[in-house]
Design a protein around this nucleic acid. Structure first.
Lengths: 211, 211
DNA sequence: GTATAATTTAAACGATCGTTTTAACCATTT
DNA sequence: AAATGGTTAAAACGATCGTTTAAATTATAC
């Protein structure tokens, strides 16, 4: 009767349901039903519903932020070697690309990216602080890189523009399956690479504009 | 014992609590406590919790969308008279400015703007469809205006860029009181006019860029 | 094989929830 | 004043919830 992957199944089910419905509208009974485990297993393995959410968040967030940092550091090193400033587009790409790749077809992380998008939006919610605590040091690094890349733009402008970028990015993290009414001639299904490029064009242009 | 403004008090309390905590994490008992009315009054006046949310959404949304449309129509008329294309910045301003003015000091609509930001993010939530149903026709108008304003940019790009803008805007609607860690020298308190201008600079630059 | 630890399980607990019920109270109409 | 309609109120309902409990089962160590 012992199942070697009980914890993983709970985590997978929780990730999916928290992403789809949010923390408060997902019950442990829904999770354990989907995972085909017993209700008390959640408390045994994770302690509480909140701790389960924390485990769900942390399981992928570390690797995602590592990828982002790698991309950033790669550009910073390159810029140093070539004795130039880091390029804004490469900086923004390091933030955007690994994130949106999480929603690529074949990715196992589609639910996770939705969940992250939700957590960013739910400013008073249970997972928000956990998530932000992980995000903030990384965003500071991006901010510093942008200040270096764009000395002609006031640093406080760059702070707010990074905020706007996070808003656009989180919106794209959530909205992969609901498009509302689409104008004639527009295909709501789009390749991830194309979406990434469009978002980069948009945000980099916004970053670089001198008022 | 009869109170002439029971409905308004319920609506005000609901607006505040739904905005702060979201629909699912707000109970009717919290709302009626804050409003100092009896629990059954909600069902008597509004029918159900969901219908209360709908009433909360609709009470301000009509006027907000009217303002947005007015701003847009004004620019379209002006452009027609002057025999020129509409200006992208004026179009975006019509979308952004009335929205963010809702969070200006002295505004009674701070909770509402937060609630709208939440609803946009909660793609499976109760209020989302109600809200989107009101938004979509208006966004189509903005989209058409942008297509007219920027003939050198592919219309499908403009569709996605409008999406990105909605993402940034809704992020700013939610995040008025939580800034996370702020870099040294940056003041997280900012005047609404300044914020509006910054967001416009950012989004208009992103709209206009030709790939 | 026995003892110990880990895991699973069903039932129960106490709490909270949205909704309903019904009587009392208040306001308006005749 | 009585009849009618509108509103408030407390209690109750049935449901759901996260958490706990204690026994049974399985896994591991000796």
């Amino acid at each position: 009767m012992s199942q070697p992957d009980t914890k993983q199944r709970i985590l997978d089910a929780a990730e999916e349901l928290f992403a789809r419905n949010g923390f408060y509208a997902t019950s442990l009974r829904q999770i354990t039903q989907l995972a085909e485990v017993n209700l008390a297993a959640v408390n045994y393995h994770f302690g509480s519903k909140e701790e389960l959410l924390e485990a769900v968040i942390l399981r992928h967030l570390g690797p995602l932020n590592d990828k982002r940092r790698q991309g950033l550091e790669h550009e910073l090193q390159l810029a140093q070697q070539e004795e130039r400033r880091p390029r804004p587009r490469q900086i923004m790409n390091a933030l955007v690309e690994p994130t949106l790749q999480l929603r690529a077809p074949g990715s196992d992380h589609l639910a996770f990216v939705t969940l992250v998008g939700r957590l960013l939006a739910d400013t008073q919610g249970v997972g928000h602080e956990i998530f932000v605590r992980q995000m903030v040091p990384m965003l500071m690094q991006f901010y510093q890189a942008l200040v270096e890349a764009l000395p002609e733009v006031d640093p406080s402008l760059l702070y707010w523009r990074l905020h706007f970028t996070v808003g656009s990015l989180s919106h794209m993290m959530r909205c992969h399956d609901r498009h509302g009414v689409v104008p004639p001639g527009i295909d709501p299904e789009i390749e991830i690479e194309a979406l990434i490029n469009m978002l980069l064009d948009f945000t980099v242009a916004g970053m670089e504009v001198v008022p």
